[in-house]
Each structure stands twice: as C-alpha cells, then as structure tokens.
Amino acid sequence: MIRLPLVIGGLIVLALVAMAASAGWIFPDDPMTMVAEPLLWPGQDPAFPLGTDSLGRDIAAGIFHGARASLAIGFISSSAALALGTLVGAVAGYRGGRVDDGLMRISELFQAIPQFMLIIVLLVIFRPSVATIILAISIVGWPAIARLVRAEFIVLREREFVQSCRVIGMSGPAIMLTQILPNALPVLIVSGTIQVATAILMEAALSFLGLGDPNLLTWGGMIGMGRDQLREAWFVVAVPGLALLITALGLNLLGDGLNDLLDPRGRRA
C-alpha cells in the first residue's frame, strides 16, 4: 500500500536535513556577507540562482544556512517540549487525584496566556539569542503535549495489561516507562512532528518581528528584511516564504502519515 503523504512528507524533511547538512559545504562563506549587487533577480546572474537581497547577499546561501537554523531550533525546542510535556503528562495521568490537579493547573497557567505573546514577553526579558528562543518556544509548547500524554495515560492506565503488571508487583515508574509509554508512542511521535513545524513557524514569526537572534540568518529574518522591497523585489520575501511553506507542509504530511501508519486500528489486530 502506497502511503503518499508519508512519502512526500518524509522526502521533504529528508531534503531539508540534506540542505542543512550541506550548507557549510555548498556555501562555505558566511551567508551574511555581501557578495554581489543588491536585488539581483533570480536567474539574472547564474552565480546567484535565487538572486540577492537588498544588501547584496546571496539568497540561495541564506536558504541553505537558514534551513540549518530552522531545523536546529525546531528539533531542539520540540525535543525539550516533548520531554517536559511527556514527563508532566505521564505523572499527572498515571497518578491522578491531587497530583493531576496540581500539574494541570500549572499547565493551564501557560495555556491561558496567548502563546505568541508569552514568547515575546519571555524574549524581551531574556534578550533574543538562539538559546533563549529555543527556551521560549519550549516553554509555550509543553502544556499541549502534556495534556495529550495525560489523556493517553488515563486511558491506558485502566487497561487490563497495565493492571496485570500491578498485580505482579511492578512499580509505578516501571509501569509508566515499560508498559504505558511504548503504547503511547504513536501519539508522541505525531505530536512531536507537528510541534517541530509549529516551532519553525514561531521562530520565523519572531525573526520577522526582529526578535530573532541577530547573529543568525533564518528564513523568518530574511522575510522580515525583505518586506521593505516587497513591491519592487517580491522574490526576496517569496523565496524564504516558499521554503517555510514547504517545510511546514512536509512536517505536517509526515506527522499525518505517521499517525495513519502507527494507528493500532490500522494494523493487524
């Protein structure tokens, strides 16, 4: 059976990883340096296939190096959000009662504030850098994952195979880790993939607003810097915009595809 979304999503993500890995090798120079006339159109000069921006920087180099920054920020912040969200959700769902109440009130505290506003506030306090951007995106990302994991643990905790482990005397942490978590893994993989896309878009939005790391070239930053020339040189915004669109699409397709693939109902029962 051909799983088209999974294949397309997987190929897009693979291509991105390849771009990020080869960036320093295909474009060894700093992508922030001016290398040509400003605002060369794509195709105008074969040396700069995607043109140059208003400061004469190579857009193709920016896309490749930007892929590196986007993927790094996306993956690290999602991993952190996933780790914290899973820990909190697992404990809350398995223990229940007051522990659950307490942990869920804390997560609601984060969810009550609009996500993007919370990130901006955090960055204004901490000053934007790669580390603080990753931290801020993780902080707003974990509550949603915690809720998802919690729901999964509440369902699985009541299943007979979990209870049969309680009867043999298995400890709570061992049950969570060896019995419930493997069965909750599909949910984690899928939400983790979507979270990477969300994180990349958030970072782009931050860079667009000028809250990105000033020493790092990212797609969002490129869009932000190109917006003044939107009417005369729209490609400066369109090229990184397209890269973002394809990335988000690819990650979402991959997440959806994995969801279908890992859904136990879709497998032989």
């Binding site: 195979f161 049969s164 009867v167 043999i168 005397g169 019995q179 493997p182 069965n183 136990p264």
Partner: peptide
C-alpha cells in the same frame, strides 16, 4: 505477598501488552 497470589483476567485480548 504478591508473589503468593496472582490473577488471571477475564479478557485475554486486553490483559496482555500488545507490544
């Protein structure tokens, strides 16, 4: 004490971890 008493569940499909 748990070692002395064990349990056989009703549903042989739900009581074994599928993974």
């Amino acid at each position: 004490q748990r070692r002395q008493m064990q349990f056989v569940f009703q549903d042989p499909f739900a009581s074994l971890n599928p993974r």
